[in-house]
Nucleic acid binder design. Structure first.
Lengths: 223, 223, 223, 223
DNA sequence: GATGAATGAGCTTTCATTCAT
DNA sequence: CATGAATGAAAGCTCATTCAT
């Protein structure tokens, strides 16, 4: 069985002030959160590149100028959202114990965590993907975000390799392949609307499809 | 061993005229090709979204207005390039015989074809990925392009499944996962500059990493 | 004697906001009016077609972009001005009582109203005429604007016809002829600069010339 | 009864060469005529301002460059067409004898000549009207063209005035009013598509409507 | 003469960012 | 803090005119 959707999304945990680091008033906190939420909604519905600053403020019911009270530009909004996204993935991955226990159950768990993290953060996923393709700065950041997960995969593979249970001459390349699969598979089904003639997938089917690929690649060869 | 890079890239095979379907003169053919080549170079170096029409004409050593002699807008340029890209992949995939012979050799061949097609068409790969994330029209087109490859994977899986050699309850989901892996893996290593601390991969390492994942997912489980 | 020029021209009565229907601030109202006034001046001096957006903003002492805060394009400006123009003519025509009283006095009054309305709205007259010749949309609108006046003429003629006082087998055609005369006569003398060797006409001479034609066509035949 | 449509339209009578005055070869004559005819068709269907040079050459089945073999620009095309138009009107008006005979028959004849001249030259009428509103140069030319007709009206009125048969204190103003009526009435019904709810008029109805206005204004008052 | 590609000035429109109220 | 008008740099696209073939 696949673990059910864990927790909430949200623009929580970001009560820093404007550019200068000033603390915000209660009203300011509310405005900032409204803008972040509006941006999330739009990043998902219209895409990051197609979202204008004025769209965000309109969606948030604020004046255009208010945007600049809290953010220097659109990039900063995404940076903030991405930070929260990364934090959630990191936290959840840490909770997993990769070595002990039934390997397939572990892989399934891992895929479930990733799938649900992405589902909780669809706007962030969409925006990061898009931004990483238009802006070198975000390409770097996105590489950083995913590098942790890649590292865990690689370490796991290396461990099994040393134990003589599976041949993977290039653990990092394989880890990158598996990570790419997970990243883009989630993007395709959660953001882009699926493949031709199949617009969506149930959570379980999606998670199991990913898990199957990961498990067989890493463990099944050993059997 | 992995087959070596087969053939040429290029903006060949597109001698249609301007929007109206007029035939081009020899001079026109040259100019059009120069613009396509310039666009390719820029799509790769600066990205699709960051490439302006004037950049293309400058890079091609033409006047701004000349662009519109051949294309209605930037989308049309990409459409043309994408068409050539898809044609190459399709042609090469058709040449492969999926069923007979050593399965791993076949998978390796398949991955090699895909990798080299992408390597020959890095600008197209970059531009299509980017455009598909900003423009619904291109998202659809890109889905169409990749659906062939997905279909072939799924059919293969279904065949083995019926033969009782492997359990894959959702062939399309698995096919999508493998396809996503290949698409994004190629993008990451050929366009984006690899993962952190590892900017590039040799052709063979890359192809074998993909092949390992595909082969183990589809065939190895049967052994 | 002919009634003297009644009231003011102007871009009054148009405090709607930008495209979306937002209400304007006091500053916004001022800017919008400045742009409308600038457009009026230029429509008259250089003509509608020859007036560029940047001319309007320059004339108004605004930045180019400010234009689009208030209007979607030049057509919208003219539409606004035309609306005011039509409103004035309509209002004044309504005040006239066509049936009772001395017929010639009435006709004179009518022509005076039309002449002065056009004189108060020279830029609108110029622009509408020009736009109606380049843009089907404005041709339709202009037809609508003048149809009221035509209808009044026709009704009047029909009334006299029934009373057996004048033979006008095609009241609408006659009304159209009289209306055409008034429209283009006003255009020629107020906008185009008159006929050869006679650049202008006093108000009274102009009004009486029109009135003579109308009166004799409709009423004089009956005597 | 109204005289029937007299003669042919056409771009005849314009065998001058290119700008420099060189004589044209037979082939050249044909090309030039084809371009003029194409321009006429387009001036009527799309309007003068909306007709591009390339439209003309395309419509004529010629290459873009060929246009400049025969004309310096679009204005020159219109000038040529206008010349032919004016020549026809002048010729026909000369044939009329204004003084002798039944006044109403004469006026009817006059209006018929004007109506049919315009009908034979709809493209020219459309283009001249439009051009006169965008281009001071054509405004002047158009004033010249119509001044002859105005002069004849005025002379006629003055003649009757001296004879004490009608009071027209400002013959030129009245002549201008009648001329304006005829010009714009023809434009409205032959080019613009009539008034609201009445897209067209039979020749006789149109001619009689004009004649009625002219006759009553000039002669009827005397009775 | 005929052809159609090449050119670039000219105009429109968008939108991030600033700033006075 | 909130507001929304003001700004102008960037693009995109059009089209008259030139010119090499």
């Amino acid at each position: 069985m696949v673990r059910q959707d864990p927790s909430a999304p949200g623009a929580e945990g970001s009560e820093q002030g404007p550019a200068d680091g000033t603390l915000l008033t209660a009203r300011g906190v509310r405005s900032r959160a409204a803008l972040l939420e509006a941006a999330r909604r739009l990043f998902q519905s219209k895409g990051y590149a197609n979202t204008k600053i004025v769209d965000i403020t309109q969606e948030a019911g604020k004046a255009l100028g208010s945007f600049y009270t809290y953010f220097a530009n659109k990039e900063e909004v995404l940076e903030q959202l991405a930070k929260d996204f990364k934090a959630e993935i990191d936290r959840r991955l840490t909770e997993l114990d990769f070595v002990s226990g039934d390997p397939y159950a572990l892989v399934l768990e891992l895929c479930a965590v990733y799938w649900h993290s992405c589902k909780n953060h669809q706007p962030e996923l969409a925006a990061i993907f898009q931004a990483s393709m238009m802006d070198e700065q975000f390409a770097v950041r996105w590489r950083e975000i995913r590098s942790d997960a890649r590292g865990k995969f690689a370490a796991q593979i290396r461990g099994l390799d040393k134990a003589g249970r599976v041949a993977n001459p290039e653990p990092e390349a394989t880890a990158s392949a598996l990570g790419s699969m997970m990243d883009y598979f989630c993007y395709v089904w959660l953001i882009e609307g699926g493949e031709m003639n199949r617009p969506s997938l149930s959570d379980n089917v999606a998670i199991e499809a990913m898990a199957r690929v990961v498990y067989r690649t890493i463990f099944a060869a050993a059997e």
